[in-house]
Design a protein around this nucleic acid. Sequence first.
DNA 1: TCTGGGTGCTACATTATCCGTAGCACCCAA
DNA 2: TTGGGTGCTACGGATAATGTAGCACCCAGA
Lengths: 111, 111
Amino acid sequence: MAIPRPGKPVRGSLSGTPVMAVFDLLGRRWAMGIIWNLSRGAASFRNLQTSCESISPSVLNSRLKDLREAGLIELTDDGYALTAIGEELFQLLKPFKEWSGKWADHIDQKN
Amino acid sequence: MAIPRPGKPVRGSLSGTPVMAVFDLLGRRWAMGIIWNLSRGAASFRNLQTSCESISPSVLNSRLKDLREAGLIELTDDGYALTAIGEELFQLLKPFKEWSGKWADHIDQKN
DNA sequence: TCTGGGTGCTACATTATCCGTAGCACCCAA
DNA sequence: TTGGGTGCTACGGATAATGTAGCACCCAGA
């Protein structure tokens, strides 16, 4: 699948705004999980495969390609790593961890 | 598809942590876009359908069900609306807009 | 040099998910 | 009671994800 570019939504997004292109890119399986994993440092293909338990290599490869073409990750001597702007994106993802705790509590309450 | 619950990943996520359950839920088409749209206030089914240009009603319905079961949105007299915790999640999504601008510039530079 | 094991990735069939369109039930106003 | 708007479901085809197998490459040891 083609890579969504800001202003040129591929998958049919809301209005073609850059933020929707982001949602388009991140709204794919494993995309955010991969970024999350790479935040701890560069990782090899195999390494990512094991930390993303059940991802198949073909999808991992495809997602890595997406993220690389989007400029969020790059292939270094140490393996795949976040780029500067990818790291910035991770900083936005970071607060999700705390929120998810609240969310979990909220759901537990209901059950 | 079953709803991912914190601690009980459905689709096979990294490690079953709550944050991965979030990524599992949001890593579906339109999920973040719907939340983004609802941040401007409650919206009807039709309303969402038009603001999410090319979403099909069946997928929209499915996503709304996902988000409702996850407790992020609810059906009010005014239509679908963010819950309190859904609104909190939107606050985390908000900074993506600014970042996406940077990202767009970054990509333009490369081309 | 020739195993043998680790790594990165591809191929392919199966399954799940998404999309597009049609259409039904409901409400309300004319 | 007809017509139009709204909320949603059904279904067939397209697209994406999964699971498994396996190939090419490198390097270490015999």
